[in-house]
Design a protein around this nucleic acid. Structure first.
Lengths: 352, 352
DNA sequence: GGCTGGTATGTTTGCGCCAACACGCTCCAG
DNA sequence: CTGGAGCGTGTTGGCGCAAACATACCAGCC
């Protein structure tokens, strides 16, 4: 990065290896403009002429040069996605869904992974994408939007997925509050005196919203609010917290902010001799594909990432194509899926 | 797709919203060529001049236009990645690693997800990428390379990750054979009479290589070769197979071709009252982050996706930059990780 | 017939950038 | 003191494409 590019760029102009419109035009005996019209599927071309051009394209193996096209149109046919690592299941699924939706709209996806939510890392990602090679950007779960030096130019369309809503950008998100509330209500409804919470990292907006909804649901129900434990979304962090919680006999129900942490949590409880759901009920969030096959099958909140991806692309295309009348926020409703990791508390348990 | 683009392209040329080199040049009082030299970090620019240009860039918010640059250099600064869905952990991890490595080299990553390994789907992906907008392509786990109509132009650099080795493209792969062999040997070494295998889908090359190594290791050891079951990498398919295997008392050890299937398998065995590893030992492949926290913690084969991503990018850059002396194949050694899901068979069990 | 309006096609132009070359200067060897 | 090499910089041209404008032709109409 930022090294001397002399050597790399020293290669002289490469020999033409792709035919251009002019080549096709010459072969078909028309002007290059007509070739352009055929390539862009314009209707005002005679059927016979179109045929000639198409067969010339075919035999020469012509492909339009996107760079030249982008230069003249100012559009790139590409969307940028900034996301924080493929380790998080949700991020990977969201990216896949965005890519699918983008392909439907004939856009390609330029992916920038960012390892850390540090200013430098995010700035680098933005700089790379903002080299004017994308028509818009989807930010997946970023908390960095308010850092002034990272502000994107106002002319760049942006959609934020699964992130903070306290900014001006259009936004697609799960209704985290509703999902978390449904889990906590479910557990309280089973008869638990209260529900403990293993939250995601404090700098994650989704984690904060889940924690807030958990707290509100408890207070609304008049249940005591136990201290919050924080993990980092990993099973490992769930395991560490689980070792702690297992030592507290008053813990009868735990809501983990994602399924991976719930896995670690259940493992720790098992090792400590606390059965799930006999002694402790555990619920997760995400409904990863493996959730039905955990031991026990995990009660969790299902999130439809496909829909999120679709909405992200739709909102972005609205901006790119200048439509301002569409919605600027979309919420996707998560659905509680009750399996076997939650049950009523043992009679007499859970008292302090 | 292939619709009339008239309306979309009808927008007249958008007002210039980005400053160009000429603007910077005017502000700095130099020629645009000098701006170009500064932008490309050439050394033959006077320090004072460079300073003036840089501050002009800064105050105008100048970003080089990659399309224009690509048009004249014939290079795009982008790598294409074709992969089959983000559902499979391995694919997601590999993509993330490729993106990281590409960023190190100042390339961006153009991601094309393909849902199905059908000819039409893959062709569409290739067409999109081959619109001369990437400098090279990484194919992650594709079996479609030999389909004649999909052949890529010889001028396009390609690297195949985790896929078939029976083709001319440079290749990065795990030493699947070695990994599978180490699992099977481990189980045989524990005293199991033989090891059953839950393979990945028949059209996956990685799955085939794992199955072949499993078979060879058994025959080399003089162990009987049980029939193979096939899954689709999902926990669900592992579960279904597990219900079958649980009914066969002679099954004392199973090698699942990935961790997700092992999870489903263990769940089915548990439901059928067969304990792991007491009655049946189970081993997986991949070492997903959650493997240590399954019940029981899963013996599996660790794969370092970061290294695979790095190698892919390195081999691709070799081709793009015209280096022909580098290696054309790289194998990454997977490592057996023994946890608690494997144990010696119960005395007297496993006889037919 | 001359006019209008529409359609198919061609010509010109310029997007922003960089390679190639030209230029003027300095420095040093011969 | 002259020739040539090296350096910083400017000038020119053209990459492939599509927008804008120009042209040719035809049909229908008063």
């Amino acid at each position: 990065m930022a090294t001397d590019n002399t050597t790399r760029a020293r290669r002289s102009r490469p020999a033409r290896q792709w035919p251009s419109m002019a080549d096709v035009a010459a072969m078909a005996g028309v002007s290059s403009q007509t070739v352009s019209r055929v390539a862009n599927n314009r209707q005002n071309v005679d059927a016979g002429t179109r045929e000639k051009v198409l067969s010339a394209m075919q035999s020469l193996g012509y492909r339009p040069n996107t760079a030249a096209r982008a230069l003249v149109t100012g559009r790139f046919g590409a969307l940028g996605v900034v996301s924080f690592g493929m380790g998080a299941h949700g991020n990977a699924r969201t990216l896949g869904a965005i890519a699918d939706a983008a392909r439907e709209a004939d856009y390609s996806v330029n992916f920038m992974g960012v390892r850390a939510q540090t200013e430098a890392a995010v700035r680098h990602a933005f700089q790379h994408l903002m080299l004017q090679s994308v028509d818009g950007i989807v930010l997946v779960e970023s908390q960095m939007l308010d850092t002034p030096s990272l502000r994107l130019p106002p002319s760049m369309p942006v959609v934020v997925a699964d992130g903070d809503t306290g900014h001006a950008y259009p936004n697609v998100d799960f209704d985290q509050a509703h999902g978390a509330q449904s889990v906590v209500s479910h557990l309280l409804g089973l008869g638990h005196r209260t529900v403990w919470h293993l939250a995601g990292p404090a700098d994650s907006f989704a984690a904060r919203r889940r924690a807030e909804a958990w707290r509100r649901t408890l207070t609304d129900a008049g249940a005591p609010v136990p201290p919050v434990a924080y993990g980092d979304w990993s099973a490992r962090s769930g395991y560490r917290t689980g070792l702690d919680l297992a030592r507290r006999p008053e813990v009868t129900a735990v809501f983990a902010a994602n399924d991976q942490m719930a896995m670690g949590l259940m493992r720790a409880l098992h090792e400590a001799g606390r059965s799930v759901p006999g002694d402790v009920s555990v619920a997760g969030f995400d409904d990863i594909a493996e959730a039905p096959y955990l031991q026990p099958p995990l009660t969790t909140v299902h999130q439809d990432f496909e829909v999120v991806g679709k909405h992200c692309v739709a909102l972005l295309l609205d901006q790119i194509e200048g439509r301002t009348d569409g919605p600027r926020r979309r919420a996707v409703e998560p659905v509680l899926v009750v399996r076997s990791s939650t049950a009523p508390p043992r009679p007499g348990s859970g008292t302090t």
